[in-house]
Simulated assay, not measured.
Amino acid sequence: MTSQVIPRRSSLAVAVYALLNPLPVGFFVAAWIFDIIYLFSTEVTWTRAASWLIVIGLIIAIIPRIINLIQVWSGVSYPQGSPIKIHFWAWLVAIVLTIFNAFIHTRDAWGVVPTGVILSTLVVILMLFANVQLAVRDRAVREL
């Protein structure tokens, strides 16, 4: 008979993670929308606003990732291909792309256009993939 180890998590860490985790998605989606608006309007304000949203989203995104890093990788071993690990890695790649995107957005407005929009699109796709796969696979496990 095998026993399943249930990880003990800090209530404060779980609360902070649940509070801050969805916020960066909103900031990055708004930055992506502002980049798309800039493509069609060429008003510099949209690109400046997008760069601020990216930086604020990055600052907020780091705290839940540190909590997730501690919870996922310390003590309890999750199986390879676990939705929690996939979620972690997808978010990590998205944050690295967002750091590059923040540097792209420091250029002048015309220099942002092709690369900034592509990076913003990739970040939004990665974050949505991470959240959807975690929700779908977690629900499938609970139904068993």
Rank of each mutant, 00 (worst) to 15 (best):
Gln80His: 08
Arg107Val: 01
Ala102Asp: 01
Ala109Met: 11
Trp52Pro: 07
Ala90Ser: 09
Val16Glu: 10
Ser120Ile: 02
Met127Gln: 03
Ile60Thr: 15
Leu20Asn: 09
Ala13Arg: 06
Val93Thr: 08
Ala50Cys: 08
Ile118Phe: 05
Ala94Lys: 06
Ala50Gly: 15
Arg142Thr: 00
Val93Phe: 01
Ile56Cys: 09
Ser120Thr: 03
Ser120Tyr: 02
Val25Asp: 01
Met127Trp: 00
Trp46Val: 02
Trp110Gln: 07
Ile125Phe: 05
Ala15Trp: 03
Gly57Tyr: 07
Ile56Pro: 05
Ala90Asp: 01
Ala50Asn: 05
Val123Met: 00
Val29Thr: 11
Arg142Lys: 14
Phe103Leu: 11
Ile60Arg: 14
Val93Tyr: 00
Ala102Gly: 14
Ser82Arg: 06
Arg107Met: 08
Phe28His: 01
Val112Leu: 03
Tyr17Ala: 06
Glu143Pro: 00
Ala31Thr: 04
Asn131Phe: 07
Val124Glu: 00
Ala49Trp: 12
Ser11Val: 10
Ala18Asn: 14
Arg9Cys: 00
Val132Gln: 00
Pro83Gly: 04
Val113Lys: 12
Ile67Tyr: 05
Thr45Val: 12
Phe103Cys: 11
Ser11Gly: 13
Leu69Glu: 09
Asn21Lys: 09
Leu12Lys: 05
Ile62Leu: 14
Ser82Leu: 04
Pro83Asn: 10
Gly75Leu: 13
Trp89Lys: 02
Trp73Met: 04
Gln133Cys: 02
Leu134Asp: 06
Ile63Tyr: 15
Arg8Ala: 13
Val16Thr: 12
Ile67Met: 01
Leu58Ser: 06
Asn101Asp: 08
Leu19Lys: 03
Thr98Gln: 04
Phe100Glu: 04
Asn131Glu: 02
Met1Thr: 12
Phe34Lys: 08
Arg107Ala: 08
Asn131Tyr: 01
Val76Pro: 00
Ile33Cys: 13
Arg9His: 12
Trp91Gly: 03
Tyr78Ala: 08
Ile66Arg: 05
Arg142Ser: 10
Ser3Glu: 10
Met1Leu: 06
Val5Trp: 01
Val117Tyr: 07
Ser120Pro: 13
His87Lys: 03
Ile62Glu: 04
Ser51Pro: 00
Val136Lys: 01
Tyr17Asn: 10
Leu122Asn: 05
Ser77Ala: 09
Thr2Leu: 12
Arg48Ala: 15
Ala130Glu: 06
Ala49Phe: 14
Thr42Cys: 14
Ser11Met: 07
Ile70Trp: 07
Ile95Ala: 10
Phe100Ser: 03
Ala31Pro: 03
Gly111Phe: 01
Ile6Glu: 04
Asp35Ser: 12
Pro7Val: 13
Phe27Pro: 10
Gln133Asp: 08
Val5Asn: 08
Val123Leu: 00
Asn131Trp: 02
Ala90Glu: 02
Ile59Tyr: 01
Ile59Gly: 13
Ile36Gln: 08
Ser10Glu: 05
Gly81Ala: 11
Thr42Leu: 15
Ile33His: 03
Ile63Met: 15
Val141Met: 13
Phe40Trp: 11
Glu143Ser: 14
Val14Tyr: 03
Leu58Lys: 10
Val132Asn: 00
Arg65Gln: 15
Leu134Lys: 13
Gly26Gln: 10
Ser41Met: 14
Leu126Val: 00
Ser82Trp: 06
Phe100Asp: 06
Gln71Val: 04
Phe34Val: 14
Val25Phe: 14
Val132Ala: 09
Pro79Arg: 15
Val123Gln: 00
Gly75Tyr: 06
Val16Phe: 12
Arg137Glu: 12
Glu43His: 13
Leu20Glu: 13
